[in-house]
Nucleic acid binder design. Sequence first.
RNA 1: GCGAAAGUGGCGGAAUUGGUAGACGCGCUGGCUUUAGGUGCCAGUGGGGCAACCCGUGAGAGUUCGAGUCUCUCCUUUCGCACCA
Length: 868
Amino acid sequence: MDKRYDPAALESAIQRRWEETGSSRSTENTDREKFYCLSMFPYPSGKLHMGHVRNYTIGDVISRYQRMQGRNVLQPMGWDAFGLPAENAAMDNGIPPGKWTRDNIAYMKQQLKSLGFAIDWERELATCDPDYYKWNQWLFLRMLERGIAYKQTQVVNWDPVDQTVLANEQVIDGCGWRTGAPVEKREIPGYYLKITDYAEELLDDLGRLEGWPERVRTMQANWIGKSHGVRLAFPYEVDGKQDKLWVFTTRADTVMGITFCAVAAEHPLAEAAAAKDPELAAFVEECKRGSVMEADLATIEKKGMPTGMHVTHPLTGEAIPVWVGNYVLMTYGEGAVMAVPAHDERDFEFAKHYGLPVKQVIDIPGKTFSTDGWQDWYADKENGICINSGKYDGLDYEKATDAIAVDLEAKGLGEKQVQWRLRDWGISRQRYWGCPIPIIHCEDCGDVPVPDDQLPVVLPEDCVPDGSGNPLNRRGDFINVDCPACGKAARRETDTMDTFVDSSWYFIRYCCPDNGGAMVDDRVDYWMPVDQYIGGIEHAILHLLYSRFWNKVMRDLGLIKCDEPFRRLLTQGMVLNEIFYRKQDNGRMRYYNPAEVEVRADEKGRRSGAILIEDGEPVESGGIGTMSKSKNNGIDPQALIEQYGADTARFFMMFASPPEQTLEWSDAGVEGAYRFLKRIWVFACDNNDIIRPDFNNDWTTLSEDHRDLRHHIHACLKQGNYDMERQQFNTVASAAMKISNYLHEIDTQERESAAAVISEGFSMLLRMLSPITPHVCDHLWRELGYGDNILTAPWPQPDENALVQDEVEMAVQVNGKLRGKVRVPAAADREEIQVQALANDNVSRYIEGREIKKVIVVPGRLVNIVVA
RNA sequence: GCGAAAGUGGCGGAAUUGGUAGACGCGCUGGCUUUAGGUGCCAGUGGGGCAACCCGUGAGAGUUCGAGUCUCUCCUUUCGCACCA
């Protein structure tokens, strides 16, 4: 064996063999327990970044571990290949998006292969392939048939930079999720999916997703936003016509305290009033403009104006003034609210500001109500009791709500209602590089679905966008078609689908990517649901909610059986790196890549400064941040792989921090990982002569030292297995390093006599490490003669006999402070342990002359002697 | 503002769920090998003290024989959500 560890040569040779033997291929086998391990597929942006490497390493470690546990593992990969960056790249350099995308896929695929991931490439798919998006279109038509998809013209969020509509979920703080540009309101027709029909189930099933992080479930629950309340109406008369103002409230128990109502600027009542009042019209305009742009809405002052109109209180018959309020949202509830200043903080502020009356109708005995200032108990519905409320006096929140709902219903002016925050999902995008929506617009027949036998509607790939709208609008050969219903000349829809449609079911298609005749087949029932999904927390709402919805639709169409697509979810942390900069003369920051910077430390290892290698002058530290272009602190994975190899990259990623936490980049840490693998390699070479693959041994004849050694190795293995199960891979790596350290401690003269212990220990080490660093482990496993294939070798288990010790060391505390240690037989009883502990020299110094009040013995751990 | 999570050596992070704090690694210090640098190997490394000892998990209280871990208050950071009626 060559003592030089040469990862470049080693890894490419091993990868070639894996490929030749088809070691990562997965076939359905109902006799074996399946395990579907999925990592979120990448957008083919050009090259892999560190976040990808981390994501896919985590997935690969889990896949390989599960396989060694005997499960039939599926680990596929594909490409989220539609989307705007391709159009932008096309505009920059005149290459059609399709070519740009496929070139990127080819390069990134080769990068993934060089990292040694056990991916079944036979199942690879790209969402821009007609074979794939045909089924987007097909399912869309099925949804249309069932009314799950529908067309609607409504005010939508318009991203002025990307020139397209955005779904509600894609608007963050009033700005586009991708561009960050302030979103405008436009009225545009588009197709919507009725995700709201599934709101209840999407919310309820969160409770069953025990393998999901709590915070992701909370985020989804908040997004869906269910509230129980009462919908009630305020009758009014305008120009001799009877009408009703509807509002929604979660505090029906306070309706007797209503002193005014407020409506959104977009509310019909506001617009009607504005038509007669120029001042009000100006205010309404101001609200409309403001409502979209402002990110800090909550901090803005609550403003309002009276409409001059009055409505009738549904229970008391009082006249209630109606105001326009800038804090009322047209998009939630009814776009109008009843205001109870005494028991809602926002209404309270508003009423104080405009001098509107405040009427207390809820009381908590012992508390004093005052209109001078807001107190939190005013809004306490748990402990409040109705007062000043006529027949409802004395009732609590629940009883009052019930009684009031009954009375409202009797008058036809209200009922209990459940209100959702979730809105339907608008999927039309005025973009070229996406899946065409399969609709044909005919003057006579209206919007006609493309017949199934004409699917897929293929996107022409030779367009080059130039920034002036969707180029499909200028493609006569695409647009001009005959109406499928009447045969007359008609016009094809040019909007494409939101790319979140593509990613909502790709994991289902991985199960049967080659089926040209159907969206799904039996194989889907075998593999689904995904057992472990791994990806970034940034998809906590968008992608994960859409996928859950899509899954349920497919289930209701009888296409799949499972209720939920992802059993367990692991959200990996981001990859961070140091930021270095200098302030330039013009006041702008110039950022330097950490590779160009040398960090200085004092003789105790503390950071003392950093200099730019090029000129030796100091640079400022900007702390730690996610790797980004703007901060110039990214590290290219390609350079890392080329210099150290995939195993080192993988080991560092797993060792530096637990998968869910952020990971700080460290060149020294990478060096350390490389050093460790080299040590393993050299150890194998040095012990090649004494390692016996058939190490089965009579362990009872070992010397005491070797029995101790074996005990330690097996204890490390036990810890490693525990951590592997709970997916804390950094300590799995630690456990492997500890085993290595124990093996290295053996004297040269002892090697022969410890051969069996070494052989066993090293075989455990290799197997435990193999999910993380598969290349080096695969090679050494074979080279040392342990077996043909470590990939399918059984996961190592500690020997129970090795875990027990004849003697154990126990800590002895006096009044909770560590004062000594004693070695006692493992089988010793409490009394025996106590006697030994009290006899300890150091311990006796602390208890001498003092009364022993109590002795606590925790077997195998410690003794605590409590003295007066 | 609301909600969640987290604060442990010079650094990344352990601590099997109330039982010996600082595993493992990085860095640093000293030494050996090397023509030299790197690599490799050996020893040391929470702080204070010559020492026995004392102090130490953001701060302060509490429960307990015993608290990094549980409870309360406060501080800081990060991440969500944000006029939701």
